[in-house]
Nucleic acid binder design. Structure first.
Length: 378
DNA sequence: AAAACGGGGTC
DNA sequence: GACCCAGTTTT
């Protein structure tokens, strides 16, 4: 009986739910922030970011009034920075269009940037007590097992089936808690590896458990290995105390964040060939290399990286090497040091900052940039 | 349907 | 090293 399972889920949730900060509020804006932060990110990772973010931006109006730079600064280290930019834009839209109130209408929420089917349903059910289903990774696993959905995750028919099942289950009292119970079960009991079926409130109605298929479900989607990319990054210092030249790209990797100048190169740099600084100093090469196969290597690449963004500097020596793995790229980066006269002034996408400023909480850089600075400046 | 988009925990 | 996490947008 679906009603029995539903009641069992809610009772289990009441007894076992974790005390998470966003479970202490019904503020749709705060719920929204938590849902965006939790996308593809573990709850334990999110908690400190959530506290800092809500402390600085307690209301939609205050977030809407902030600069994107500051918003990204508070997001720095969390990853998937586009989430922060879309949340910022979405909240601005809510302030401009809906008087600062997150819309109770599902269709209106779905129209907001960064709000997809999952987030719309989470806000709707948790903040507005609406019978809106959600399917995240946890719910997908729970439902795929319970109902023996054996088609691969991500396939259209699979998604359709899972959303149907979630839609049936959410109907009834406490839809928000029901949705959270499904997620909580997936996160703490119906886990990918070593699920604790003994402690599952719906074990009796689980098809996979009855069939001995728990470990075989769900069928994961194929995962591609990150593409290997070689690059050269340049830490160009200027003045005393030394500041480091930083650039910011709108659409590049780490869009909106500050980074050091970098270019993709064709091949790994042979460190044996990276000798002491030569007399060729002030290179300003204008050739941009669209295809990495045509890209320069080593010192030439360092010149190119600086020239591309208008920083005039004398390239010194290779100062380190950094690897950084993302979900879709595996970056292998030679880090070069350079000493700059100065950069172009007046460009919004170029600035210099001290090591301390960049390292401070609230500065909008990726982990990669921090690694690169560590490699170059010790 | 596939790729882009971060970073980290866990087995 | 593989897998996957309270996903959405773009191609």
């Amino acid at each position: 009986m679906a009603a029995d399972a539903r009641a069992a889920l809610l009772a289990w949730y009441d007894a076992h739910k974790r005390d998470l900060p966003w479970r202490r509020t019904r503020d749709p804006y705060a719920i929204w922030v938590s849902e965006i932060m939790c996308q593809q990110t573990r709850v334990d990772t999110v908690i400190p970011y959530y506290h800092r973010f809500l402390e600085r931006f307690p209301t939609a109006a205050e977030l809407a009034a902030a600069s994107e730079d500051e918003v990204l600064g508070l997001w720095s280290g969390l990853g998937y920075y586009r989430r922060a930019r879309l949340l910022h834009r979405g909240v601005k839209e809510v302030v401009a269009t809906y008087g600062g109130k997150v819309p109770a209408e599902r269709e209106a929420r779905l129209g907001l940037p960064g709000v997809g089917k999952y987030t719309a349903g989470a806000i709707g059910s948790i903040a507005f007590d609406a019978e809106e289903p959600i399917v995240d990774g946890n719910v997908a696993r729970v439902l795929a097992r319970r109902h023996r959905v054996a088609t691969p995750l991500g396939a259209k028919e699979t998604e359709k089936r899972l959303w149907e099942l979630a839609g049936e289950l959410v109907k009834g009292p406490r839809p928000g808690d029901l949705n959270q119970a499904l997620m909580e079960l997936g996160a703490t009991v119906c886990t990918p590896k070593n699920p604790r079926c003994e402690g599952c409130p719906v074990q009796a109605s689980c098809g996979a458990h009855a069939a001995g298929e728990v470990d075989a479900l769900p069928v994961p989607k194929k995962r591609k290995k990150p593409k290997l990319v070689h690059a050269v990054a340049v830490v160009a210092t200027v003045g005393t105390p030394a500041k480091v030249w930083l650039v910011r790209g709108e659409r590049a990797l780490f869009g909106g964040l500050w980074s050091v100048p970098m270019v993709e190169t064709a091949a790994p740099q042979l460190s044996l060939l990276a000798g002491p600084a030569s007399a060729r100093g002030e290179g300003v090469r204008s050739d941009a290399h669209a295809d990495p196969k045509d890209a320069p290597a080593g010192r030439d690449a360092a010149f190119a990286a600086l020239a591309n963004v208008g920083v005039k500097a004398r390239v010194k020596e290779k100062a380190g090497y950094v690897e950084h793995v993302l979900s879709h790229r595996h970056l292998k980066i030679d880090v070069w040091r350079a000493v700059a006269a100065r950069g172009r002034d007046g460009l919004a996408e170029l600035r210099a900052a001290t090591r301390e400023e960049v390292g401070a909480r609230g500065f909008g850089v990726s982990r990669l940039t921090k690694k690169i600075l560590d490699a170059a400046l010790g």
